[in-house]
Design a binder for these strands. Structure first.
Lengths: 120, 120
DNA sequence: TATTATGATGTAAAGATTACAACATGGATG
DNA sequence: CATCCATGTTGTAATCTTTACATCATAATA
């Protein structure tokens, strides 16, 4: 665990906004100007392999980072681009895949969030 | 509807393997050598907007195309890279997002498929 | 202190997708 | 039938995200 890795992890724990790598990079660079974006990518790999964070890809564009690893769904607003969490109370893993080893699980819903829907 | 669009749509209806844009391009270019990959991208946009096909992003790398639009889940094998469909019998959209307009719905499961798990 | 292993940095490359301009086509209109 | 216009296609170039790789820094160890 290096200062850079701790910085990325702390940022993701404190900012539950599903930021992109670029967002994290810009935020942390303010404090440590020598930070490299490659380090962010490497750190994301390391933290993902360690099971501490998750990488989600929803909609187009960049990957989003998520410090919450408990199963939950992601709502992607196609207007503002924000990602919102939601519970998965009534959704369970399928039993219909014999012999398949399931390791990760994510539910993606796309649409328009409440804030953007109101503006119409 | 042009020959190119019909070709892409037919290919996706007949090949339920969640091919990439590149795969579709290579397959169709055999019959019509003048085909451009840009046309595939444009056509995918057109067909997606028309609600005829879906674009799924699961795991890393390229987008995968899917001619099946009825709700179903996608299992991504991290070993062979194949994408498998599964039913969503016991998974329903969450009711916990008031004011949100839900338009699309996808369940992603990552892991190792039966064929690859057997080889261990 | 010298050595070694690991991580960080920055540049360059790769890969996927999009933007854009030129060309082709087909239908509508006079 | 000729012309015009709108739409679609093509190919190149640019963009954007991510990765590869070589170099530098650092910390632990012998």
């Amino acid at each position: 665990m290096t200062p850079q890795r701790i910085g990325v992890y702390r940022y993701l724990l404190e900012n539950r906004t599903h930021p992109t790598v670029e967002t994290v990079y810009q935020a942390l660079k303010a404090d440590s100007p020598s930070l490299s974006k490659t380090t962010i990518y490497n750190t994301v790999d390391t933290l993902t392999d360690a099971g501490l964070i998750r990488v989600i890809r929803v909609g187009e564009g960049e990957a989003r980072l998520d410090g919450e690893i408990i199963d939950h769904g992601h709502f992607f607003c196609r207007v503002c681009g924000n990602v919102y969490d939601f519970d998965l109370d009534n959704c369970h893993l399928p039993q219909s895949l014999p012999g398949f080893r399931m390791e990760g699980f994510d539910v993606h819903v796309a649409g328009v969030c409440a804030a953007c829907a109101e503006k119409d």
